[in-house]
Computed example of a mutant assay.
Amino acid sequence: MPMLLEVKPDLPVEDTYTHEDDTSHLNQKDADAADIALKNQVSIRDYCREVPMVGIHTTCGEAASMLNQDQSYPCVVLGDDQNRPLGLLMRETLYRILNGRFAADLFYRKPISHVADSSPVVVDVHAAAPGIIDVALSRTEQHFYDCIIITEEQRLLGVLTMRDLMSLSRRLQHEAGEERVHTITESRQEISRIHESITKLVVSAGSTGEEAKQIIHLSEQGESSLMQVKASYNRVHQHMGGQRQHANDMLTSIETGAGMARSIRSLADQSALLAMNASIEAAHAGDYGRGFQVVASEIRALAKQTREVAGDITSLLEGIGELTRQTVELVRASAAEIEDSALHVSEGGEAFSQLNAAVEGMSRNAANIAQEGKQAGEVAEYIRRKLEAMVSGDEI
């Protein structure tokens, strides 16, 4: 019985897989991915074999003569007048039927529609190659090696043999491998960039932590200085309180002294009045009262001096009292300013405390970021090594 010798169709050069030790494509950018995808586009049309289409009235003998004339035909396809496939007759099937003892007499003049497969697998040329392979592999053992009929707009375009399907599958696997290597390479490069970014992030977080520590140190120094200023203000405020009390006591003393001066002046006035009365009485006494009149004159002069001195003391005490009151007002105003400044110093101290808390929180966050970044960097490095191992394994 004649055996079927399938001839592989002429394929483009890129369809033939040869393993080359070329890793230059692993370092290409995304633009190369588009070139690879364009190069690796699979077209079912490239694998189609031309086979004769016969009518349903063609006899088995005529079909056998047609297949004998061209041994490259693996089958004949039954079709209607519009070239739409209706059935499939494989070369082996026809030869097996005609090689029987009485087969020539029984089948030679019969139409091939009696022996052809009326339910062949028919797919469109634009169908996905993996789907066609799945359909072919899901057939029963009886029709496993039958051709797949390829149509375009429901008209016969050609057929695919099992060898064609294997070549197609090999090309798909080769392209999937190339795409996998390209994807892994890109992933490795991305992981490397992520690792570099994480490393920079960890370094920046460490620097931020150090800067935060310096800020905390300076803030603590500033807070300590403010506390010292506040303590100084409190001491000054206490001293001013004492000075104000002393000034108040001085005013009280001045007022007492002024009262005493007024009393002295009153006594001087009374003494002058008594001296005048004594002079009058001395004049009445005549010669006997002249000595007493001299004493009265002296007393009157002394009372006048005392009154003048008392007036001077009163004026002096009033001036001192006015200056003391002004001093008390200045001390009171200074104390108010110091109290207001102390309040601002307290607010500044609270602000420094809040700043310390915020910076400590930032420092903790920076430490957490550095720790998490370190862990993420370790994971990225682990993934990168795994991807490198996968790429190396694919290239061996």
Rank of each mutant, 00 (worst) to 15 (best):
H195L: 12
I254G: 04
H143Q: 15
A272M: 03
S279Y: 03
L226N: 03
H143N: 15
D164K: 04
T140A: 15
S232M: 04
T252S: 12
S207K: 15
S167F: 07
A275T: 01
R235T: 06
T140S: 15
Q214W: 13
R171W: 04
I149K: 08
R170H: 14
Q245M: 10
Q270P: 02
R188W: 05
N234L: 04
S207F: 05
H246W: 05
Q221Y: 09
L165F: 10
Q245A: 13
E190A: 13
L201P: 00
L226A: 02
H195W: 02
R265P: 01
R171I: 07
S169H: 13
N277A: 06
V203R: 11
E186N: 09
E211A: 15
L201I: 01
I150Y: 02
V159E: 09
M276W: 02
M240I: 12
S192K: 10
I198N: 01
I184D: 02
Q142M: 15
Q228E: 08
G259C: 06
M250S: 09
A258R: 10
Y233L: 06
E141K: 14
G241R: 07
Q154M: 04
G158F: 04
A231Y: 02
E220D: 09
T199L: 03
E186L: 07
R170K: 14
S225M: 03
E210T: 15
G222P: 00
G158M: 05
I216H: 11
V229Q: 09
E175M: 06
S169Q: 12
I194W: 06
V202T: 13
G158S: 06
H182P: 01
L168I: 14
E179I: 05
V181A: 12
A258P: 01
R244M: 09
Q221D: 05
